[in-house]
């Protein structure tokens, strides 16, 4: 697969890189899960799978109850004032966390790309310091496994034909590279098939899917065709927002192809195959 030359150029990201791969598997972590608003409401199974995988690896998962939303929808649509309180809320809920794991690449991208700027807009020095301190401990689920824990095999079993969709934010903003694919390759029983134009956007884009519904649909049409061409049984990704959009068309077109978050693929085991 063509996983290379991703541009990693954001200052937060560079600063963040120094923290990669510091843990060993012996190190048991207390992981704070930020489930994200839409996973909480629409994709609870993804959250369950994250808990399952992390606990299987020997870590403890906690769920700060006051969490809601990262603010991405508001910020990216132009409602900046509405997004600002959500930053403060996230920081207050997670600032003491040992590690924050988020099963949504676009929410993590939101934090890494905009939180510092948002804190600067708010102009609260303590908040800026807290954001700078917290961000290096925030991980997208797959990168937590590959970069923080240094794992490629999480002991999963998943006997299906699967294709991987590289969500744009994971691909470009987080620079996940071939991390998720490495995890998938180690899954027992899986048949991983590559999709054409892997790096092309599926057309979700948050409110874009509604504001420019026709263009979004046209983009989705190409992506769905590419998925069907792989003859995969299901399409996985690190982001349920893309998958919800793709699933919507796969279902509407009665293709029988399913979508499943990466965590749910990795949660599969031989004793209780999903």
């Amino acid at each position: 697969m063509a996983y290379h030359d991703w541009d990693v150029s954001n200052r937060v990201r560079n600063y963040f890189r120094n923290f990669f791969v510091d843990a060993t598997q012996e190190h048991r972590l207390r992981v704070s899960l930020f489930i994200t608003c839409y996973n909480d409401t629409l994709f609870p199974d993804t959250g369950k799978a994250v808990v399952q995988v992390l606990e299987r690896l020997g870590h403890t998962v906690v769920f700060p109850a006051g969490q809601t939303c990262c603010g991405q929808m508001h910020w990216n649509t132009g409602y900046q004032e509405e997004a600002l309180p959500l930053l403060a809320r996230f920081v207050s809920q997670f600032k003491d966390a040992e590690a924050v794991v988020i099963p949504s690449s676009s929410c993590v991208a939101m934090m890494r790309e905009h939180y510092l700027k948002m804190a600067e807009k708010i102009g609260d020095k303590q908040l800026i310091a807290d954001v700078e301190d917290l961000l290096p401990r925030v991980w997208e689920f797959s990168e937590f496994l590959t970069k923080k824990l240094g794992l490629t095999d999480v002991g999963a079993y998943f006997p299906h034909r699967v294709t991987y969709h590289a969500s744009c934010h994971g691909l470009r903003s987080l620079g996940l590279g071939d991390g998720p694919v490495t995890l998938l390759r180690s899954v027992k029983g899986i048949q991983l098939v590559e999709i054409k134009n892997l790096e092309q956007c599926c057309g979700f884009g948050g409110t874009f899917a509604v504001k420019n519904a026709e263009v979004s649909s046209a983009m989705l049409g190409e992506k769905v065709q590419a998925i069907l061409n792989t003859q995969a049984e299901l399409c996985t990704a690190c982001d349920n927002s893309c998958l919800m959009h793709i699933e919507g068309a796969l279902h509407r077109q009665r293709t029988g192809v399913k979508t499943l978050h990466l965590a749910e693929v990795l949660a599969g085991t031989e004793s209780g195959a999903r």
Binding site: L42, A209, S217, L220, E247, H251, R252
Partner: peptide, 17 residues
């Protein structure tokens, strides 16, 4: 705009939290 070309699965009975 969403349902022009896409379906949406119903909300699960239980949230993650």
């Amino acid at each position: 705009g969403w349902t022009q070309v896409r379906d949406l699965h119903e909300m699960p009975r239980q949230t993650f939290r």
